[in-house]
């Protein structure tokens, strides 16, 4: 039975009010919770435990850290690791920078596709496979030596494998894609007309690159360098495969401490030292160039 109202009723269509994209608190917490738990459990906890172990293991206190610095092998290792990583970083910046710059300029599409493929292909190969490929290439009876002997440039094969150079080569090859991808966004966003502008104002080509291009792509360069350096100091496989068991990279000595000498506390101390160095580099970068540049590089 219908009845007539004196005033018309309002239509209720669920919750009134404009649709908002912002999540209310409770659902948001639930959605983020799994990620936070995983992060806490698998990243934060092990790291904290690592730090604690480094101070409580063995004789406790700073003894493990002094053990690290007292061992000539580990000291050398740290220095070599930092030095070689620095060299790799510089090489990656130079090579990767020119690659990123070439890729960001308008040009032949086919050529650019090829270039992108060449840059990104190493990404999709396992690090062992591509490092081993270098070992095969550099061996005494490998491709490079055979080629140079064949064309008569050398009589004896050159010692290329198991040298610091081999390690630097292999690491640069592996890290190059990271560098290119970190630097590309900044370079692609660079207004090429600025170079023309500088030119008309009287700047030589190199001058324009130095005064205009460099300051504007610097954030990308710094971000790329930080990423490459932070990852390089932790390398394990490439130094071992290309540098031999005697190549002192930090990861190798840490591995020794774990697998051969069962000196976990000292291994923990070494690891913390590496971690602190990597964090320092990254934080310093963040401060200089800002979060955006760093994110741009890591997001790829």
């Amino acid at each position: 039975m219908t009845h007539v109202d004196s005033h018309p009723q309002r239509l209720k269509v669920g919750r009134s009010g404009p649709w908002s994209a912002a999540l209310p608190m409770l659902p948001a917490v639930f959605m983020v919770a799994p990620l936070v738990i995983v992060a806490l459990l698998f990243i934060v906890y092990p790291l904290v435990k690592l730090g604690i172990d480094s101070f409580t293991g063995g004789s406790g206190g700073f003894s493990n850290y002094s053990a690290v610095f007292q061992s000539a092998a580990i000291r050398n290792s740290l220095v070599s690791t930092l030095l070689m990583s620095a060299v790799v970083t510089v090489l990656c910046l130079l090579l990767g920078g020119s690659l990123a710059w070439s890729l960001s300029k308008p040009g032949n599409k086919i050529l650019k596709t090829l270039l992108w493929t060449a840059v990104l292909l190493p990404f999709w190969m396992g690090v062992v496979v591509k490092t081993y490929a270098w070992a095969v290439l550099l061996a005494n009876n490998g491709l490079i030596n055979s080629f140079f002997m064949r064309i008569g440039l050398i009589d004896e094969p050159m010692t290329l494998l198991y040298t610091p150079m081999a390690v630097v080569l292999g690491m640069t090859y592996t890290m190059l894609p990271y560098a290119v991808l970190a630097m590309y966004p900044t370079m692609a966003g660079f207004d090429k007309e600025l170079l023309n502008s500088a030119s008309v104002l009287g700047s030589s080509n190199t001058g324009a690159m130095y005064r205009v291009w460099l300051p504007l792509v610097r954030p990308g360069l710094v971000a790329g360098g930080a990423i490459v350096f932070a990852i390089s100091i932790g390398f394990y496989i490439t130094p071992v495969l290309l540098g031999g068991a005697q190549t002192p990279f930090m990861a190798t000595v840490i591995g020794d401490d774990i697998f051969a000498y069962f000196n976990y506390p000292r291994a923990a101390a070494s690891s913390v030292i590496l971690l602190v160095i990597a964090l320092t580099v990254l934080i310093a970068t963040l401060k200089t160039v800002g979060v955006k540049a760093l994110k741009g590089g890591l997001e790829k």
Binding site: P46, K49, A251, I254, I258, Y264
Partner: peptide, 22 residues
Amino acid sequence: PFFKRRPRINALGASAATAAAL
């Protein structure tokens, strides 16, 4: 002619590395 894959030891936890090695 290749090595059994070695776990990658980086600065982010020797204990994690040990677990991975296992």
